[in-house]
Design a protein around this nucleic acid. Structure first.
Length: 646
RNA sequence: GGGCCAGUAGCUCAGCUGGAUAGAGCACCUCCCUUCUAAGGAGGCGGUCUCAGGUUCGAAUCCUGACUGGCUCACCA
């Protein structure tokens, strides 16, 4: 018998649900008088206040057996009890059959977990290749809190997929082209002060991080742009329309007239429209647009400016990603992929997937699918967001011929976009489109409300990370356990705690849901937090250091605290698999939190090192060791590190 | 207005394909460090699961309709 087979046999032997199912199905005729379906067999956890380790729901059988729940439970229970040696006893309470499982079963389960250093993970590269896209930043401003949720989520889902045996390609699409990029470029050219050497501001001569510097000019553009729009409106309001075309004048008058009789809300809406009208007349926007045209024409000067400023941003992002602890296998740039997108639109046009309107713009009609018409190419032939996304997707399958699916980690405000994108890809004949999945996560709100860049309420990623690490430092230094550490080790620990806390905070919530970010809670150390979990890990490691070498695990009797932990440990594999099916790191977080609570309860109630009986002590140490292992294996999937000491 | 999503304790969140008396953390109140890390543990307080119908042995969970909030319906990305 091969080693693997042997292991599988052991695994089978210690999977009680599977065994009970098998026994029930193979003895179905004798027990029930006919063949039952597997779906009837429903297990659940036994309630805390009821004796038992596993519960079978009896209701589905009641109808078939035409007896009371109590009788049905009794019949099934006593049959299984005589059939399976790991069932020590059973009881039936109001339609629920509760099994009491032998201590031997649980100790053997622990033995099995102990043997496997990657317990809960599937064997590597046993499943198809999946690309996980995340981050996807614009290169005109620094990363913020929303990006942190995105990055941590994408990274974690990628790790979870790997743990489930998938080959994973972590990808990032960098949104490096478009009018928004030109705005920062233009603002820098126009408004940057000169230093005494006559140079404009650069990251080198100012010491400002590249993405921050570029972001500063994006804000500057917006400021100047709004000021110019306001002065235009002021002119219009005095009746001065010199230099504006008739359409604009007529539109302004129409809007201004429509204000009469409206309430405050209606007037505010009209004012916004007037402002948009004025914005479109600003010289600044005009210049930005001209710059974009030059960029598309590869004007050498504009191109140089573009590569220079993007270079600053990339460098800035790189350092942010390093602090975040995320990485990528493959980078895509929209400046590369939008061209392919245009080709695909042309191809789709000949296939009849798209149609052209009189003005030359290209559309797809999705009304049969319950959606609208959607633009895929502007009338001037330039690409829109959708165009490049089609291009990017196809590009990826060219780069990775064995690619099975793509997961797009993008906020839920783009639900509609991705619905359309996948539909377009499918209609273009790409069957893999149905393996594309939009991992749509909710927005992050602040106690003060939504983050709005205009109102300056955006939480900067670098600042936030520095804050949490700093507060971890303060709180850790108040305690005494790290006195002997080197400064490097200490800093590493502060980073681990601060970042661990932040990641855990952002990942413990169901990704699909909108969440509240409370800065004070995010640095909290007590309760359902990253540091609480890290602390328990450090505590176990301390025990193990003091214990020295461990002996063989012997069959000893176990307490209820120990059994609860063993039961919970045994569930880890199925949680890892659920987390992958649901793309939900939150499941891992909640599982680990539960494990840690159980362990702390045990730690408080049961002596370990002080235990006189060597075999008992050894079992408790091995149990502790495997709790630490599973904490580590679980937290790793969230990108959260765990310390030896804290 | 059309489409999508959400509504669970004072606050932040769990509650998988319907299952027993709906759970955590924070906050508030009691206890527990001459046992191994008290960033811990034990207990208390706190609920019309937004509302109204329906489906069935059974509904926070599924269906329908309201109400509230969010997102979205751009030749923006």
């Amino acid at each position: 018998m091969t080693c693997l087979k042997k292991q599988q046999e052991v695994y089978r032997k210690y999977n009680m649900e599977k065994e009970i199912k098998e026994v029930l199905i193979t003895n179905s005729d004798a027990l029930f008088g006919f063949q039952i379906e597997e779906q009837l067999i429903q297990f659940q956890k036994t309630r805390k206040d009821v004796e038992g380790d596993l519960t079978l729901v009896i209701f589905p059988f009641v109808k078939l057996l035409k007896t009371s729940p109590a009788d049905a439970g009794e019949k099934i229970g006593s049959f299984l009890n005589s059939e399976l040696d790991f069932i020590q006893d059973f009881n039936v309470v109001s339609g629920f059959l509760n099994f009491i499982i032998t201590g031997e079963y649980w100790v053997n389960k622990l033995k099995m977990i102990e043997r496997n250093s990657r317990f809960g993970y599937a064997s590597k590269d046993s499943k198809p290749t999946i690309m996980v896209e995340y981050s996807s930043p614009n290169t005109n401003k620094p990363l913020h809190l929303g990006h942190l949720r995105n990055n941590f989520l994408g990274y974690s889902v990628a790790e979870i997929l790997k743990a489930n045996g998938h080959k994973v390609v972590k990808a990032q699409i960098i949104n490096d082209r478009g009018i928004h990029i030109c705005k920062s470029m233009l603002a820098w050219e126009k408004f940057s002060p000169l230093n005494n050497k006559g140079e404009k501001e650069t990251p080198e001569n100012t010491g400002v991080k590249g993405d921050k510097l570029v972001g500063k000019y994006y804000v500057e553009f917006d400021k100047q742009f709004n000021a110019e729009a306001r002065s235009i409106i002021e002119l219009w309001e005095t009746g001065d329309f010199g230099g504006f075309n008739n359409y604009v004048i007529a539109e302004f008058n129409r809007l201004a007239d429509s204000k009469t009789g409206k309430d405050d809300k209606g007037i505010a809406g009209i004012d916004t429209k007037i402002k948009d009208l004025a914005k479109n007349q600003t010289s600044l926007l005009l210049e930005a647009k001209q710059m974009l045209v030059k960029w598309e024409g590869r004007d050498p000067q504009v191109y140089l400016l573009w590569t220079t400023m993007n270079g600053w941003v990339y460098k800035g992002f790189e350092s942010t990603y390093e602090v975040m602890g995320v990485d990528f296998d493959k980078l895509y740039y929209e400046s590369d992929t939008f061209v392919l997108g245009k080709d695909l639109v042309a191809e789709g046009l000949t296939k009849g997937v798209f149609f052209k309107k009189d003005d030359g713009s290209v559309w797809i009609d999705l009304s049969d699918d319950g959606l609208d018409e959607k633009l895929v190419l502007r009338s001037d032939g330039t690409a829109v967001y959708m165009t490049q996304d089609v291009g990017t997707a196809v590009d990826r399958y060219k780069d990775y011929p064995d690619l099975d699916g793509i997961i797009y980690t993008v906020g839920n405000e783009q639900d509609y976009h991705f619905k359309v994108l996948f539909l377009i890809l499918y209609k273009l004949g790409y069957n893999w489109a149905k393996n594309c999945f939009h991992l749509s996560y909710g927005m992050v709100d602040l106690p003060t409300g939504k983050m709005k860049s205009r109102e300056g309420t955006v939480v900067d990623a670098d600042d936030l990370m520095a804050d949490v690490v700093n507060s971890a430092k303060e709180m850790t230094q108040e305690r005494g356990y790290i006195d002997g550490m080197s400064d490097d080790d200490k800093n590493e620990l502060f980073d681990l705690i601060g970042m661990g806390g932040l990641k855990y905070y952002l990942l413990k919530v169901d990704p699909k849901k909108r969440m509240m970010f409370n800065p004070e809670e995010s640095i909290e150390l007590n309760g359902n937090t990253g540091p609480f979990i890290q602390y328990t890990h450090a505590r176990i490691k301390s025990l193990l250091r003091k214990a020295g070498d461990l002996g063989q695990l012997k069959l000893v009797s176990i307490t209820s605290e120990e059994k609860e932990i063993m039961k919970h440990l045994a569930e880890f594999s199925s949680v890892v698999s659920e987390a992958s099916k649901n793309y939900s790191p939150a499941l891992i977080a909640n599982y680990t939190y539960e494990l840690v609570k159980l362990y702390n309860h045990f730690y408080q109630a049961v002596p370990v090192l002080i235990e006189k009986d060597e075999d008992l002590k050894n079992m408790r140490l091995i149990l502790s060791k495997n709790v630490a292992k599973v904490i580590h294996l679980g937290m790793r999937l969230l990108g959260v590190k765990v310390p030896e000491i804290m």
